[in-house]
């Protein structure tokens, strides 16, 4: 193959990749702007009323807040568990460390629908914990693998003798962690937070089982809404959420070179 035809092939592959990545996104943006009372693509006429309607649907507001709270606090809890776990797995030659790594990764490997069913059948039903608490625990567990993985990889290059150096300069072990380890894995922790936030926010299969009266995460609420009302506001909401995710990733990339950690 000569240079110009290889270049052409590269552009075709790039074009197809972008089409499949961005295409669906464009479809929902436009479908949400369709001036029809049902979901239509290509849009028939353009309007912003469905985008505005999203903000007036009461249940969307409640479920958005629940999803936000789950994503923020679930991810924070996962980091609270995951950072020390990553630290211990990296620093100490623990017996069974490999097993722990595998178990920690389990929520990624096991299909969410099974996790959801299992939590409902063996946690919520027998113990009677509230659905909100079960959701919080489930989301923490789902995000934990990302927290451990991402923080581990940023801790991997951090030599243990740096902490010993800090101790010899007068730090306690804990100060050595806060003054030397944490600042050096800050980027990894933030990356884990963003990854965890997005994962939790977009979570469907587990949350599907853990819904109760008045307790629904946003994606579940959107599914329920669509079953009854098939108007373009769901597409509009999806587009808004996609923009939110994009904004988060964009800001993270600008602030700390997010892509280095993922």
């Amino acid at each position: 193959m000569n240079t110009s035809s290889r270049l052409l092939a590269n552009w075709i592959i790039l074009g197809l990749t972008l089409t499949f990545l961005i295409g669906p996104f464009l479809i929902i943006i436009l479908a949400g702007a369709s001036d029809t009372s049902y979901l239509a693509f290509p849009p028939e006429g353009l309007t912003l009323r469905w985008y505005l309607k999203v903000f007036t649907v009461e249940s969307f507001r409640a479920s958005f807040l629940l999803s936000m709270a789950l994503a923020i606090f679930g991810t924070l809890a996962a980091l609270l568990l995951g950072v020390p776990a990553a630290y211990a797995l990296n620093r100490y030659d623990l017996p069974g460390a490999e097993t722990v790594r595998t178990i920690v990764a389990a929520p990624i490997i096991v299909p969410g629908i099974i996790v959801g069913l299992a939590l409902l059948r063996y946690l919520v039903v027998p113990t009677g914990v509230t659905v909100t608490l079960a959701l919080f625990m489930a989301h923490t567990a789902l995000v934990l693998p990302y927290a451990v993985r991402v923080v581990s990889s940023s801790m991997h290059n951090l030599r243990a003798d740096m902490e010993e150096a800090a101790v010899l300069l007068g730090c306690s072990r804990f100060q050595a962690f806060t003054k030397v380890v944490l600042p050096n894995i800050r980027g990894g922790v933030l990356a884990a937070f963003i990854l965890g936030f997005v994962t939790s926010f977009n979570q469907v299969p587990v949350s599907l089982f853990l819904s109760g009266p008045g307790v629904r995460t946003l994606p579940i609420d959107m599914l329920a809404y669509m079953e009854i009302t098939f108007d373009p506001s769901v597409a509009a909401l999806s587009a808004l959420l996609a923009f939110m995710s994009l904004a988060i990733v964009f800001v993270a990339e600008r602030l700390l070179g997010f892509s280095r950690y993922v």
Binding site: D161, A165, A166, L168, G170, C171, V180, P183, N184
Partner: peptide, 19 residues
């Protein structure tokens, strides 16, 4: 403990704080 001994150690890897 090491942090109360008043001893300096220059590590083979230098162990400087990169941040």
């Amino acid at each position: 403990p090491a942090n109360k001994r008043g001893i300096g150690l220059v590590f083979q890897s230098y162990a400087l704080f990169p941040h």
